[in-house]
Design a protein around this nucleic acid. Structure first.
Length: 191
DNA sequence: GATGCGATTCAC
DNA sequence: TGAATCGCATCA
């Protein structure tokens, strides 16, 4: 990430999924009038990672083939929750970055309304909560959101301590330490 | 067509 | 601890 406030473009997502995921911690994610600091992400690699959708869903591999780095990859999990990813097409390999948690910064009243609760720390403390709080859904799948007038990602503070650990809720490739968190954030999906 | 499986969340 | 709830992949 560069200087605070600098807007990320598609080129950022031309490095490896792991580098993208780690570097996004501390960035500001903006979505249609609401947004917050990215405090938790996970990396998924299109090759060599059994937990990535590309390993068991041909449609995910096809999505990568037909979309550009930085495009949104949104899907319905457990038939209940939409999960938000960013497409990565790096020199070292393609993949996705899953956004798992934000620290709410603005548009908080709208997020509270959509979530039906008032505790700020809990508004975006999980991948399904985050999409509900921001109003992300099916129609955003494939969207080129980095260049939108009301959507995008900008760089935050560069000195955010980041901790790596195993990814959450997966049954395959559990050993890889590809979950990244802002240390001591009160808004993580789990401590 | 039928079946099984999730990168989750919340109530019981 | 289990239900909710459905897209996608696989198999008959």
């Amino acid at each position: 990430m560069k200087d605070p406030g600098t807007r990320l473009d598609a080129d950022y997502f031309r490095q490896s999924p792991v580098d993208c995921a780690r570097g996004l911690i501390g960035g500001l994610f903006e979505w249609e009038g609401a947004g917050g600091v990215i405090v938790e992400t996970e990396a998924y690699a299109a090759t060599g990672d059994a937990a990535c959708h590309t390993a068991f869903r041909p449609s995910a591999r096809e999505f990568l083939d037909h979309h550009s780095p930085g495009d949104a990859y949104v899907y319905l999990n457990y038939g209940v929750h939409w999960l938000f990813n960013v497409t990565v097409k790096g020199a070292g390999g393609d993949g996705f970055v899953l956004f798992r948690a934000l620290e709410p910064v603005f548009g908080i009243p709208a997020m509270k309304r959509r979530r039906g609760m008032d505790v700020i720390e809990g508004l975006c403390s999980g991948p399904g909560k985050l999409t509900k709080a921001l109003g992300i859904g099916e129609s955003d799948h494939g969207r080129e959101f980095l260049t939108g007038s009301r959507t995008g990602i900008s760089c935050g503070k560069t000195d955010v301590p980041v901790q790596a650990g195993p990814r959450v809720g997966i049954s395959r490739a559990q050993g890889l330490p590809w979950r990244f968190c802002a240390v001591d954030s009160a808004c993580l999906s789990r401590p």
